[in-house]
Amino acid sequence: MAAQPGLQPEPDYTFKILLVGDSGVGKSSLLLRFATGGFEELVPTIGVDFKAKVVQLGGKTVKLTIWDTAGQERFRTLTSSYYRGAQGIILVYDVTRAETFDSLADIWLREVDMYNTVDECIKMVVANKTDLAEQREVSTDVGVQFARAHGCLFVETSAKGNVAVEQAFEELVLKILETPSLLASSSSTFGLKAKQPEAASSCCG
């Protein structure tokens, strides 16, 4: 279910966050770790997955809807529609595969520029799989410089080793909370396009 009913107060804000990056970099694992605290060997994402989590940050109750997209090129026609309305975008690469880092500049940042509809949307580069230290191909410095050059936050994580995953999401949310225009864009219309305001009836319970 989308939220834990009854336990949480009404959220002050609802943010839409999108995870993008090449196939197999660990997008679904990061989301699973953040949303449930667990880790398991995951299968590829077909299409788009979605999880919601309510967090308390900066004295606010924030509901996050996090969209996890398939990495394969062909799915981009589908995922492009999910950029709309996102206040936060997480670009993930695998530190043990340099080509997944190269894709951030070659593909994913371009996609963000092309499809994102929210000015001042917060971008974050996440370097995942730091537990595989011996196989590392992309150094921390290279990652940091890249993120800085493109105006992105930067965090190194290990979804498997449970390193800095929560921190990454929290940093992103705090940055969104500091950006007034993003707070204004937070509403229930975090979907793919503006929703009709008409109340949807659920006569058929």
């Binding site: 279910m1 979605f50 919601a52 809807t65 979907g191 009836s201 659920s202 319970g205």
Partner: peptide, 16 residues
């Protein structure tokens, strides 16, 4: 699915 009421995202989530 019907139990999701007016919550469209919950319906999406239930279907998914």
């Amino acid at each position: 699915v019907l139990a999701c009421g007016a919550d469209g995202l919950a319906a999406y989530d239930t279907l998914k």
